[in-house]
Write a protein that binds this DNA or RNA. Structure first.
Lengths: 206, 206, 206, 206
DNA sequence: AATGAATGAGGGTTCATTCAT
DNA sequence: CATGAATGAACCCTCATTCAT
């Protein structure tokens, strides 16, 4: 662990270089050599701060996961309206995944031999599932959502929808308009759980 | 291309060995040597049938994609009822992805340098999106689904939901009951597009 | 393990190249690269036959130890006379160690992390000690050697003498005449155990 | 060369840390980093006092060799009796080698590229050989030892015996009782040169 | 067609040494 | 003097591919 300012700067440079390379080139382009070059330091310096390639990978994933956690803690009380909250949640969710999924997906499969990292990824996903689950449970309790839906299963499915759309749009570069996507995801989500209280949809489909 | 029976058998053995290794060990375990061993043939024989490692990879992906295409062609006219058709589609979709996604996901990211393969994967996805899109358009035309939804965007989003749930359940081994999942996915799907004609849901929520 | 003739030849070439390098350059000069070069094969070929640098080292040590064992099995019944047998034993011992000690000594200390190899070396030494011990016990039983000497301790000490002289002479290149050395070692050995029956020394020192 | 007290202390700490590491871990564990750590100083400080790794190695060897020289100068006139003197010499010899051989043996082979160090080791050995040689010559002159033995060859051989026994006992950890070993070495040594004047052995073996 | 030996560029890591603070 | 970051050559090993049999 670096004790001097210079050391910390170098370490940070390596971490962010690592993340950039991971996002742009994938795991196969992620090597101590390329990372060191991108960080503007010499080859051996890499090993001053990281025990191994995997060590940096873990560190990057930890940082990304940390951001996800932090992003998820942003106060959800932006609106009274349930639908508006869903829109907000989806927008944030989508953007958070846009950044994180590039890295997290790589780890999901690529990181053989490092069970710990895989679990970190699963924990992030679980966090989102749990939040969705609790939100749905609250809506059901308030009589605002279809009470016959299993909260966990529903949260998994709708979370999966948003995550995968983020992947399709940001990683696979499917050319979609972000606002339209957020709008549709939110409407689909709301309709899927038969959300009431949405302006203009109050009456259902009589 | 092999002309003799023996040749064809050897080639097939290599392909299915390659697929098994890909599904079980991922890209990192996929090497000419391991594949040859798994196929029970000698080391150099690999290059009798494939120009390179990527050549086999392409071949395997082509096979998997072919199965997806084939599975998707199964007559959708199993039921008159729109909801029952959705249930059936989701069940088949889920299972088809269960097999295919193991391989296709790897390719999505891992196969740098082979744009052709990436496109193959995108084509498979596009096929499903197009089918969902057309189905939705038909339902909208018949007045059975929310006409304000963009068919393509909706098909992408709901397809994404099913695909990602398949991934979570089969690859990440989230312990879920397949029947319950199919049931929920179908209900969510139906509700999301405000499907009418579903027995017992006809009246909406007056 | 090589199945073809060519393979066996290459493997043997690597082993003997490895041994030569060990004898001439020591452990520090012993690298897959130098060995492969000395054997006239390419770099990677080394790993066709040996899992690692240590694997070849083990193999070489095993071969050297094997030769030592073989040399030690040469019939000791070359003469009825105990002294002549000692002379013969010392001559053979000296020559065997001349070859082996170059390699075995390196291993004794250098091979960190490979306890198995160290034990192999100790076993070779033990073999010689045991043989010396048994020989002395026989002489003592026949009333031909000082019965008050501890056979094992004596065998260790006298074996140590011969081994170390071999080292000094052959490895450190102390310029000594081999015949004189054998003669003195034998006389010192015989006198040390108060061997009787030596022609011309029968009467002791009255 | 350090001028301040603190400087001298740091230098000494490095030297004794170096020696300890050499004795316990061998040459492979002997690095500027490990030595600096063991001495409790920072990484770069090493090069304040030593030009290179080899520089410290030389310094350590010089110190060890110096101790050997010093130990050898201890007055040998502790007893009139020749046999008692041999016993005493062997005991001191054994203990001196116990300490020194750990370091000296490493150098004998490991220190490629540093002929100077090798010679230092050989000089130490030569010192002991010369002393043994002279001792034997004196005994022969006094009619107390077999006059037909070549003094140098005999000194080499018997010195080799003691040195190698020390190695076997202290480095290879052969479990032997030190007193018994000294006793046997002395008896073997005395008998080997047909030493007269040993109480109770005066008469030879008539 | 099948075999398995041969190849060597490339990847991860270590470590003796230098240098700026 | 002391510190610890920076350096890069050297080392061990892997593996996709070629080639002689």
């Amino acid at each position: 662990m670096p004790t001097t300012t210079r050391g910390r700067r170098t370490r940070d440079a390596l971490i962010s270089a690592g993340r950039e390379i991971l996002e742009q080139c994938g795991l196969s382009g992620f090597s101590p050599e390329t990372v060191a070059q991108a960080a503007g330091v010499s080859y051996g310096t890499f090993y001053t701060y990281f025990e191994s390639k995997e060590d940096l990978l873990r560190t990057v994933v930890r940082a990304v996961a940390g951001e996800m956690f932090a992003a998820s803690l942003v106060s959800p009380a932006t609106a009274d309206d349930a639908y508006t909250r869903i829109v907000e949640a989806n927008r944030r969710y989508l953007r958070a995944w846009a950044e994180a999924s590039k890295v997290l997906r790589l780890v999901e499969q690529g990181a053989d031999s490092d069970e710990a990292m895989r679990e970190m990824v699963l924990e992030v996903r679980e966090l989102y599932v749990t939040r969705g689950e609790e939100g749905l449970r609250r809506l059901q309790g308030a009589g605002l959502a279809d009470p016959s839906l299993d909260p966990r299963l529903t949260a998994i499915a709708l979370g999966a929808m948003v995550e995968q759309v983020a992947h399709v749009m940001y990683s696979l570069k499917e050319p979609l308009d972000e606002n339209e996507v957020v709008d549709h995801l939110s409407r689909l989500w709301a309709a899927a759980i038969s959300l009431r209280g949405r302006p203009g949809h109050e009456g259902g489909d009589t």
